[in-house]
């Protein structure tokens, strides 16, 4: 143990502790709590029953009051630990409450009613994970539908993005033609035209094409990403032009050069773009919110926000669905974090 502490606290060159080290570790540990705490709290809460969620102060772990079925009573009764007048504590089941007095029975002797002041009893609690928060949205709500819509949009948009952007990047990196600079500038200029600026006319165009209330209306406007073209082109520029010339000498068609030579060599950049595209499309919110107005077409993000905006929010379901929505992104984060961070550091895109 002491070796671990020494290992964790050892400093470069054996120098002693400095005030900046204290600032550093305070910042890091504080950051750990602030960054992970909220998400952990959300996951913990998602396993609580509606009653436990309404409690204040809340418990860290999900607890419910233990219930017991007592002979002669139809419904299961809540169990309490009650202090009797003689000072002894016994576990009793509550039959009903009248004012400050509670009528209780001993589960072992159901015939006899014992009256206890409510101040003298505390509920017997047990840990219980309310997994029905997860299962019920799948069976009773359109949750499966939303999940499917999100997956469909994400996968389709990513595939189209990869094909369309890599073709454009190929043209812009391996051919000399008039207007190449113009095309490149046009694509880069798109960076200045975010969705929030063109949403009104874009909506009318999507409607005119009959794509309103269609998942394709969500997919198509997003697939020609300028950043995608940009990173693929930058990567393709590093592939020597001699390779293309050699393939032409081998009588390959331009199409073959694209998919047999350039695409396989661009795999690392394609992988980066694919990961980003998945995260982007999975997380998209404003545009699906505009285009999709029929419930059965909602993506997860839209469905979640609509349900959470209702007057009578069913938090136990919302929390569980939020956790499910988080899962793919958390998986991406755990397995591809290093990949993504180097991608961002290298290209400065998000």
């Amino acid at each position: 143990m002491s070796r671990i502490v020494r290992f964790l606290t050892r400093r470069r060159g054996g120098k002693g502790w400095h005030w900046t080290d204290i600032v550093t570790w305070t910042w890091l540990v504080g950051g750990l709590l602030i960054m992970f705490g909220p998400a952990v709290w959300l996951v913990g809460s998602s396993f609580k029953s509606p009653a436990a969620l309404a409690e204040f102060p809340p418990t860290i772990l999900p607890y419910v009051t233990q219930k017991v079925t007592v002979e002669g009573y139809d419904k299961p009764l809540d169990l309490y630990e009650a202090t009797l007048e003689d000072g002894s504590t016994v576990v009793l089941a509550e039959v009903r409450r009248i004012g400050v007095m509670s009528q209780m029975v001993d589960p072992a002797k159901p015939g006899e009613i014992i009256k206890v002041n409510i101040a003298k009893r505390t509920p017997v609690r047990e840990m219980s994970f309310a997994t029905e928060n997860y299962t019920e949205p799948f069976t009773h709500f359109d949750f499966v539908r939303y999940l499917w819509n999100s997956v469909f949009v994400t996968v389709t948009a990513t595939l189209i993005t990869l094909v369309v952007n890599s073709m454009a990047a190929f043209a812009l990196s391996k051919y000399e033609f008039r207007g190449r600079t113009v095309a490149m500038l046009l694509i880069l200029a798109t960076l200045m035209v975010p969705l929030s600026v063109i949403m009104v006319p874009l909506y009318s165009i999507v409607s005119a094409l009959g794509l309103f209330n269609s998942l394709w209306g969500v997919i198509l406007p997003t697939v020609a990403t300028p950043t995608g073209v940009f990173i693929l082109r930058q990567y393709m520029l590093t592939i020597p032009d001699e390779l293309v010339d050699a393939a032409r000498m081998d009588k390959a068609s331009e199409w073959q050069i694209y998919w047999r030579i350039i695409l396989p060599l661009t795999a690392p950049a394609l992988a980066v773009l694919a990961i980003f595209s998945v995260v982007w499309r999975w997380n998209d919110f404003l545009w699906p919110l505009i285009v999709l107005s029929r419930k059965e077409l909602y993506t997860l993000q839209v469905g979640l926000s609509i349900y959470s905006g209702e007057l009578n929010v069913q938090w136990h379901f919302i929390l569980a669905m939020t956790v499910v929505t988080m899962i793919p992104v958390v998986l991406v984060f755990i397995f591809l974090q290093r990949f993504i961070t180097t991608g961002i550091a290298g290209t400065g895109l998000k």
Partner: peptide
């Protein structure tokens, strides 16, 4: 990774996480 983690979360999830924390019976009030 600790500081990068929320970047990938969807804005809707981010909004809901914090709505849950800032609500009346939330973690902050606790």
């Amino acid at each position: 990774a600790v500081f990068f983690f929320p970047v990938l979360l969807s804005p809707v999830v981010v909004g809901l996480i914090w709505k849950w924390i800032l609500q009346r019976q939330g973690l902050l009030n606790f």
